[in-house]
C-alpha cells in the first residue's frame, strides 16, 4: 500500500521525464519549427477573419 502511495507521490517525476522525452522527439521531427511558423504569422482564424 505504502509502495503504491509513494509511486503516486513521485508520478510527477515520471510525467516530467516523459514530457522532456516527447519534447525532444518533437524537436527532432521539426515540430517546434511548425509551431514557430504558425505563431509568427497573424493567425487569421484566431482573430475571426480566416
Amino acid at each position: 500500500m505504502d509502495f503504491w502511495k509513494r509511486c503516486k507521490e513521485k508520478a510527477w517525476l515520471l510525467g516530467t521525464a516523459l514530457g522532456l522525452l516527447f519534447l525532444g522527439v518533437g524537436a527532432v521531427w521539426g515540430q517546434l519549427e511548425v509551431i514557430w511558423k504558425k505563431a509568427v504569422m497573424i493567425c487569421l482564424e484566431c482573430i475571426g477573419i480566416g
Binding site: T16, G19, F22, L23, G24, W29, I35, K37, K38
Partner: peptide, 27 residues
C-alpha cells in the same frame, strides 16, 4: 494554437512537440 497547428499539418504525426510541453507543465 500549437496543438492545432501540429494537427493541421499535411503529413499528420503524433504531436509530440506539444504533448511534451503538456506533460512537463502539467506534471
Amino acid at each position: 494554437g500549437a496543438l492545432q497547428a501540429l494537427l493541421n499539418q499535411r503529413n499528420l504525426q503524433v504531436p509530440f512537440g506539444i504533448l511534451g510541453f503538456f506533460f512537463v507543465v502539467g506534471s
